[in-house]
Amino acid sequence: MTEDFYCDEVLSGKIKVNKVLKTENVFGVSSYKTFLAEVHFVVIPKNTSLL
């Protein structure tokens, strides 16, 4: 476990999300009815060593 929500839960498939973008460098998802907003978009870099 990496203690990173997006790596551990979203990218592993444990939490269902809608894939909205997939490129060589990033992966984008949306989820609905989050505590933040009706629709929540997240773009995740595939190479986290650049962060």
Rank of each mutant, 00 (worst) to 15 (best):
K22E: 14
T23P: 02
G13A: 06
P45E: 14
K46T: 07
T48P: 15
S12C: 10
F41L: 07
F27Y: 14
K16E: 08
K33R: 07
S12G: 07
V26G: 02
V10W: 01
F5K: 09
A37P: 03
A37F: 11
G28T: 00
H40R: 09
K16C: 07
F5E: 10
E9S: 14
K14W: 14
V43W: 02
I44S: 04
E3V: 05
T34I: 05
N47I: 06
L51Q: 14
S31W: 10
V20A: 03
L51R: 15
G13W: 02
S30Q: 08
L51W: 15
S49T: 12
S30T: 08
S30K: 00
I44D: 00
F27E: 00
E3A: 05
N18S: 11
L11Q: 05
V17A: 06
N47L: 04
V29I: 04
F41H: 03
K19E: 04
L51K: 15
S30F: 01
V42F: 00
L36E: 12
S30V: 08
P45G: 13
E38M: 08
P45V: 12
T2F: 11
V20S: 12
S30L: 09
F5V: 12
Y6G: 07
E38A: 04
N18P: 01
V39W: 03
